[in-house]
């Protein structure tokens, strides 16, 4: 049934920004293939013309008025950051702006 190649696993890991060791890659290749095979029982269902349902409870038009009420002070904003400088979050250089 469904088998993922090692390259598939590497591609997904990069998309998901997950660093994987070679052992992990091999492990996920197996586990993901197993789960994909398992979930493929859904292909038994005739789903032609069935509308998709992304929400458990159908609601619509939930909106808020344009009011300011949740801004937080900077110490609370930065309080959990690994690195800060000049009231900003500091990271390694990003050049491809």
């Amino acid at each position: 049934m469904s088998t993922l190649s090692l390259q598939d696993v590497e591609k997904i890991a990069l998309l998901a920004r997950l660093y994987l060791t070679p052992e992990e890659k091999a492990k996920y290749q197996q586990q993901l293939s197993d789960v994909l095979t398992y979930v493929e029982q859904l292909s038994e269902l005739d789903l032609d013309g069935v509308p998709p349902q992304a929400h458990a409870v159908a609601q619509q038009n939930i909106m808020r008025e344009d009011e300011v009420n949740s801004t937080i002070p900077i110490n609370k904003a930065l309080g959990n950051a690994a690195a800060t400088a000049d009231d900003q979050f500091a990271i390694q250089a990003v050049f491809d702006e």
Partner: peptide, 18 residues
Amino acid sequence: TRALFGPEVKNRIMLGTF
């Protein structure tokens, strides 16, 4: 950094991404 996720979380993120 994201490798700090445990094995099952990584597994599910991978599946969901795929």
